Structures are given as structure tokens and as C-alpha cells.
Simulated scan of single mutants.
Amino acid sequence: MAKSSHVILEPGQITYRSYISEFDGVRALGVGSVLLGHFWQPSISKLVFQFGELAWIAVDGFFVLSGFLIAGILLDRIGRPRYFSTFYFRRTLRIFPVYYLALLLGWTLLRFTNGGYGYHYLIQHWGSPMWFAFYVGNIRTAMVGAWPPSAVYDPLWSLQIEEQFYLLFPLAVAFLRREHLRNLLIGAIVLAPVLRLICYFVRPGNVFLQYTLLPCHCEGLAMGALIALRVRSGRWEISKSKIRTLTLVLIGVSAICSAMSTWKTLEPSPLTLFARLPGYTLASAGFACLLIWIVMYRGSSYTAWLRLPPLQYIGKISYGLYILHPIALMVMLEAARKGWWRFHSPLLFFAACVCLSLALAVCSWHCMELPILQLRSRFGRKQAQPAMTAEPLLSESSQ
């Protein structure tokens, strides 16, 4: 690190082809908290279980990271040939294969295990899984006011929020001036909690309106995009005292979200009153501070722990891990139901679910995602800027 009292980010250092390895470490920690929240049982340790319930904070962090990376890609490609087709083609190759594989595996398990009871129960009490096939399952969840009664669909609402953002945001980048784009993003940050407050008074019994709809849960994406816009708008000089302030804000916000989202309630953490009103905004703001901190100190000794090889690898396979881990849970539950494998300990069941999730994610990464990413990297190569680092771009977003 330089001995200057300021950390300086020159415009152009974060570009379309650049790769910040620390983000893989962040993804690994985030998806790890999700696995803990979905697999850990309170009978093993209630304290660890409560920590796992805070995985909703990590999901809001994923939104900030996705907003930063996707906005950066779009801002760096604006004005280049095939702006829209390149972006949508690359997003399709990154998101769709594993997503539809998870839908197919989940549908097969529901339809052909336990006499198809899970599938028929889903149809009768929630609706058709085709809502997920068209990336509008989050809207159906808000309409019904309930989660789909199957673990396979648990993580998909967040992917659908992101996909809807990916569909709309390229238009804003293409047709708005940067100052107008900045105002739009600030407006989204302000409007999201206001919309949640309106939903609270209009439909207080339907908590999913606030949690699963893009307009009500978009501030994280907007904050990430706003940071991406700032780092491309000229020299950014931040004093170390301001970075220390960001660090304190991050710690404070994390403590508040952790304490308030589990206080005097047995509800799932993201659906508490605190989380649904100021919680998502606070969690996103805290992660925005972390993102700025990482961007400023990337490659330094301060972020070396995020570059540890195990975290790096899990971060690379985190998309498959996030979307396929409910499949692992369903397989383990079906194995236990049929007596193929008796889990005499909740801890053993947790370990088995994690191991199977990792195995599915590793297979997905090496057999599907990595070959597709290599194909995707060749598309539009002539239009892309040269890499700013020696490391290849493997993915812009892993959630």
C-alpha cells in the first residue's frame, strides 16, 4: 500500500474485462451463509441457527454486487456495436443453463417421488411451476402471499428479481444521460422503502409484496449500479479517515440488522417487520460500504483473506451451489423417507447436504458452466476492451 493518506481510484481501472478476485471470496461467504440457513437445525446449536437465519443479509449483498458488476459492463459497452445483443446473449449463457437444469431436476423430483404428492400439492396450493420457467415466480409468490411449497424454488425469487433488472437496466443505460441515470438510481434507492411502507399499510398481511417484487426490493441493485457509475465518472479520491468511517458504518449496520431481524420473533428473518421496512435498505447500504472498501483495497494485504484459494474456488462455483443446493436437500429427504440412508444425527444430515450440494455445484461448474463461459468469452471479443488485469473474466455475477 502507498503511504498516502488517500486511496485513489483512477477512471477506467474497473472496466468490462477486469476481474476483482476478492468478489469470489465475498460470494463464497454469502452462499455459505445461505447453506447454513437452509440446512442447519436449531437442535444442533440454536446460536448457529440464528446466524444462518441472517442469510437474507447476504442475499441483499448479492444484489449490490450484481448491480455494480452489471452496470459496469453496460457502462463500458455503451456506444459499441451490438450493445444489446452482446449483453443479453452473454447473460442468457450465464444464467439460463443451470437455472433450467435446476427447474428440470426439481420438477422430476416433485413429479416422480412420493407418488407425485409434492407436485400436486404445489399445483393446488400455489400454482404451476411454469411461473418460474418465465422468470415471474417472484410475482406469483407476491400474488399468493406464500412461498411455493417446495424447497427447490426457495432461492429462485432473487434470481428473478435480478433477471428483471437485467432486462430493464440496459435500456436506462442506453437512453439516459449519466446525470439522469444517477438521478434514476438515487430515486430507486429512495422509492423502494417508500413502496414497502405503502404495501405495509395497504396489504399488511402479505409480507411477500415487500420482499419478492423488484420495485420494492431494488435498492441494493441501484446502490451497486450507482457505485459503478461513480468509479467511471472521473478520479475518485477517498481519504483513509472516510474509509474508516465506511468500515464503522458497515459494522454498525450489520450489528443492527443482526439484532433487530431476530428480536422477539420466530418468523423467518427477511419477513420480520424490521427487515421489510428499513432492513433491506440498511443491509444494502452496509454491503455497499464493503464493496467500496474492497474496490479501493483490492489486491492489498487488507483483502488477502478474501483471496484464499478455498474461498476463491467456492466463489467460482457459487451460482451452481446457490441454485442447486435445494435439489441436494430434496434428494436427502427422499433418501431418508425411503430408508436408504438413516441420519441418526442432525449434524450428519447437515454435512451430507453440504457435501452433495458441493458435488452438484462442482459437476455443474466443470461440465456445464465453465465450457459455456469459454464459449461466451469468444462472443463479441472484437468489441470488448482488452483486459486490465492478467486474470480472465470468469463471470460478472454468480448469484
Rank of each mutant, 00 (worst) to 15 (best):
L329N: 10
W305N: 06
S261Q: 02
L321I: 03
V362E: 07
P268W: 12
L266A: 15
A285S: 13
R342T: 15
S318T: 05
S301F: 07
Y322V: 08
A335R: 13
A275D: 04
H344M: 13
I292C: 12
A275V: 00
S318E: 01
A283F: 04
V331Y: 03
I317A: 04
L291S: 07
Y297T: 07
R298H: 06
L311G: 00
Y297R: 07
I314M: 05
F274I: 05
L277I: 15
W263F: 14
K316L: 13
C289G: 05
L277M: 15
S258W: 12
G286K: 03
L290Q: 08
A288E: 10
S258V: 04
T265V: 11
L356V: 13
I292F: 13
C355S: 14
A283T: 05
Q312C: 06
L282D: 00
A255P: 05
F350E: 01
G315A: 04
A336S: 15
L291V: 13
L321P: 03
L273P: 09
R298Q: 15
C363R: 10
F350I: 03
Y319M: 10
G279Q: 03
A285E: 09
F343R: 10
L333M: 14
L306F: 02
V295E: 05
R342E: 15
F350Q: 00
S318G: 05
A359R: 01
S345N: 13
R276G: 15
L291W: 09
A255E: 03
P270K: 00
C257Q: 06
C289V: 07
A351K: 02
L333Y: 07
K316D: 00
A328P: 14
C257V: 08
C353E: 06
P309W: 06
